[in-house]
Simulated scan of single mutants.
Amino acid sequence: MLEGLEYLREINTASVLLRLTLAMFCGGMIGLERARKHRPAGFRTYMLVCMAAALTMLLSQYEAYMLHHVWAERAAEIGIRTDVSRFGAQVINGIGFLGAGTILVTGQQKVKGLTTAAGLWASACMGLAVGAGFYECVGLAFLLIFVVVHLLPAVELFVVENAKNMNIYVEFQNLDNVSEIIGRIKAQDVTIYEVEVDHGKQTLSQHPNAIFSLRMNQRGTHAKILAAISELESVYVVKDT
């Protein structure tokens, strides 16, 4: 068994596939819990970040191996004495600024763009692997990133819709309506564990609004709760955030 592990520690197709898949799985499992709690960075974001980090480490190992073996004579002729992985490190640091520009906090205090930023970072790491000629890793990484970005949103949506935690943004006429909204929410067999009220001056909204953090005792009641709140005449806007 230990011999098999030594084989998987080498840079080969089986090792690359296992490392990238394991990173995607481990990141996804951590992000799954975040998604269940309805937090901004969730299922796919954790997957992309963990997998991109694994891809970066693989690339560093690949470059070190190639420089001391396949490219050794050429490196000696040129006189390369630096760590080639530093070039990639600068790209990874730089792409962080670009990714940060895609992250926004909306007027409903909802964070958006985290998955986009993670996707940008993962794409930058894949571009480094392409530039280094690490084609086996590029192909596998592309397939996994494609699956995360294009095929897993439905899985993430299913997890969020069936989660026991939920945040609701509500705009209403005046602050006297808060107690009425709370009563309507509790009538749906839901526990309110946090209420953040805004008088309409701290956000772009002209009306008083609030974010209700809920914990549902039954799964699959998201739409029922939203419908119950929207029936109130004092409510202008109700959204699941």
Rank of each mutant, 00 (worst) to 15 (best):
L5M: 08
L8N: 04
C50K: 00
L59P: 08
A52T: 02
A52G: 06
A76Q: 10
Y65K: 14
A35Q: 15
C50G: 02
C50I: 10
I78Y: 10
E73H: 09
T13P: 02
V16G: 08
A75P: 09
G42V: 05
C50Y: 03
A75V: 12
E3I: 03
S15M: 03
G4T: 07
V49N: 02
L58A: 02
F87A: 13
E63L: 15
W71M: 05
R74Y: 11
A23Q: 06
I78S: 06
H69N: 14
R44K: 13
M51T: 14
E73S: 11
E77Y: 10
L22E: 10
H68G: 08
Y65T: 15
R86A: 12
N12S: 13
K37W: 01
I30E: 01
I11N: 04
A72V: 13
R86T: 14
R44G: 07
G27M: 04
F87L: 15
A52V: 01
M29N: 05
I11L: 09
R9C: 01
L8Y: 05
C50W: 00
R19N: 06
L20I: 05
G42R: 05
Y7L: 08
Y7R: 06
A52D: 00
K37I: 01
Y7H: 07
A64Y: 11
Y62M: 06
N12W: 09
L20D: 02
A41M: 09
I11T: 04
E63K: 12
A76I: 04
I30P: 00
L17D: 00
K37T: 05
E10Q: 14
H68N: 13
Y65H: 14
E10L: 07
F43G: 03
Y62P: 05
T82D: 08
L67N: 04
E73D: 12
L55Q: 03
T82Q: 06
L20S: 01
E77V: 14
L17R: 00
E10T: 15
L55K: 00
R36W: 06
L58F: 01
R74C: 03
L5D: 00
